[in-house]
């Protein structure tokens, strides 16, 4: 009977240790998932960053094209280049997205530019990157949400406190992206 009792105590101890490890490893995985999700966004931001000069140079080759929007895009690109932290990169990314929205909307006014093969290819490529970016941002926010919920739930909260885990901020749409794009278009009347 003593052996059974001892065995029982060993099982309880093993269960407690095992459960602690499961919770601990789960929280580590959640923390690393956020890093991975951000790294997957960063890859797309970098790809978009590299496509911008090509797009700007195609637009610049059209003498009539409004320079203001290109300058804004260039300055947003420089901001992204300077950005170090996740937050700074997110803000600069929002400025680029807003600039691109403006540029593509303005391009509607230039049929010559719209039919340019290079412009068409770049537009498609950047649109795909934007779409991927939106989905990965959603994925990142889901990962952050899972993390933030877990570290406040019992029993994870005890281990999260022990690991000094803190809430992580979501990747929100910037003010610049939320604003409507203002463009003056002189459309011929039908």
């Amino acid at each position: 009977m003593d052996m059974v009792f001892l065995g029982g105590i060993l099982f309880v101890l093993a269960a407690l240790v095992g459960y602690f490890f499961t919770l601990y490893n789960g929280l580590v995985a959640l923390k690393e998932n956020i890093k991975k999700a951000w790294a997957n966004i960063d890859v797309i931001l970098k790809q978009r960053y590299e496509e911008l000069p090509k797009l700007i140079s195609v637009c610049e080759s059209f003498a009539k094209f409004e320079k203001g929007i290109l300058d804004r895009l260039m300055s947003a690109r420089e901001n992204y280049q300077r950005a170090q932290s996740m937050g700074e990169k997110a803000v600069a990314s929002g400025q680029i997205s807003s600039g691109l929205q403006g540029l593509f909307a303005l391009a509607e006014n230039y049929p010559e530019l719209k039919t340019n093969q290079n412009f068409m290819q770049l537009q498609e490529r950047i649109s795909q990157l934007e779409e991927t970016l939106a989905d990965r941002r959603e994925f990142y926010n889901d990962s952050v949400n899972n993390h933030n919920i877990r570290i406040q739930q019992i029993p994870d909260v005890f281990i999260a406190n022990f690991m000094r885990l803190q809430e992580v901020e979501m990747f929100q749409v910037s003010e610049a992206e939320r604003q409507d794009v203002e463009i003056k278009i002189d459309l011929p009347e039908f």
């Binding site: 499961t22 789960g26 995985a29 959640l30 998932n33 991975k36 997957n40 890859v43 779409e131 991927t132 989905d135 990965r136 994925f139 889901d142 990962s143 899972n146 877990r150």
Partner: peptide
């Protein structure tokens, strides 16, 4: 816990 912790990816744009 892995299933609970991982958000759903979209096939077209997921990593």
């Amino acid at each position: 816990r892995t299933i609970e912790n991982i958000p759903t990816s979209k096939i077209n744009t997921g990593a």
